[in-house]
Amino acid sequence: MNSRPPTLDEVARRAGVSTGTVSRVINNAQHVSKKARQAVERAIEEVGYIPNVSARSLATQRRGAVVLAISSDDPALFANLFFAEVITGVNAVIEETDLELLLFLAASERGRERLARILRSRGADGVMLLALRENDPLSKLADASGLPVVHGGRSLDRTPEWYVDADNRGGAHQAVEYLISTGRRRIGTVTGPLDIHAGVARYLGFREALALAGLSDARVVNGDFSEASGAEGMARLLDEHPDLDAVFVASDAMAAGALTVLRERGRDVPGDVAVVGFNDIVTARQTQPALTTIRQPIEALGQEMTRVLLRLIDGERPTPLILPTELVIRDSA
């Protein structure tokens, strides 16, 4: 009696992976971790599985690279620890694969032209986009490529099909709720840029929390997430609202600038003015006083963006992700 040949499912069960991973190993896909590849190869040998050669020949041709395109050409970009942590997260997942990571700063016309050449030449398998502004041409360029595209964050003009974001609105709401719970009533904010989704979402969270408490939301100045804009915004708030007793600052970098101005103006933190930031980058633990802030999982955002993209490249249709935020209480509030 002829024995039944082993199946793909049996290989997957023996290796402790999905059948999709087995198929990727058989088809020599580039983005399989070394550990998974070794487990599948060992299982194939143990069960005596013989891959279908004709099926392997139909495997999609891979270029072996993915693009991370950031809508910025600011030379100070990498001084912003948010971007550094996102890139660290992206790289951590890429290192588990055989893929190369191509990084583009593509806010300028020249930067976008360079990216377009790569995409037109099919020099990459997929694209991740970060720091997009409203009606950003980078989004249209990536969509026109026909490649899988994952957004880090959402856009104001549309919700992309695939994205990974943090709960910016909920986090800002929690920050202001906490300030209210400590007895603060004259609360201001230095917003992020209001032409990007994160900036608007954090501003809306600020307004919602104050409205629910029956408090004024009129103490508002706009910033751009930089330390300099946080300092400028804090100075304006103090000039225009000298009775201010708390401030929600929409990024930790801006909050560091705000703390400097409060110190220069002789305001005690948190005695006179309590301060809460957003992100929980390393700087938040190093400010004087240490910064109470909303932690978003920045490195995890980069990791999950990459994982979603790899699943898209494999022909899957993953769901978008919104990562949770949490309040971290330190000395500034």
Rank of each mutant, 00 (worst) to 15 (best):
K140D: 15
V32H: 00
S23A: 13
A15D: 01
L147T: 08
L321E: 09
D125K: 06
S54H: 11
A333P: 09
N168K: 05
A65M: 10
Q303E: 15
F278H: 03
A59V: 06
A84W: 07
R117M: 14
L321Y: 09
V275F: 04
T283N: 05
V22D: 01
A43M: 03
L262D: 08
E113I: 08
I294Y: 01
V282Q: 12
A258F: 10
P320N: 06
R265F: 06
R169E: 14
P137H: 07
I94F: 10
A246E: 07
D224W: 10
A209V: 03
Q303F: 01
G233D: 10
T88A: 14
T21K: 03
L212F: 03
D98G: 15
V247I: 04
A198E: 15
E326A: 12
R207P: 03
R63N: 15
A43N: 03
A12I: 04
E208N: 12
P318Y: 09
E41K: 05
G123V: 06
L310W: 00
L309W: 02
A43I: 00
A250W: 01
E85S: 13
T21E: 05
R236S: 13
T97L: 04
A175S: 12
V282D: 14
Q30C: 08
L58G: 07
S226E: 12
D9L: 14
L312E: 01
L81G: 05
Y163L: 07
H241M: 02
K34C: 00
D314Q: 05
I118P: 07
N80K: 08
A142S: 04
A107E: 11
Y203S: 11
F78L: 15
G214Q: 04
R267S: 07
E326T: 11
R154K: 15
A131Q: 10
R330A: 01
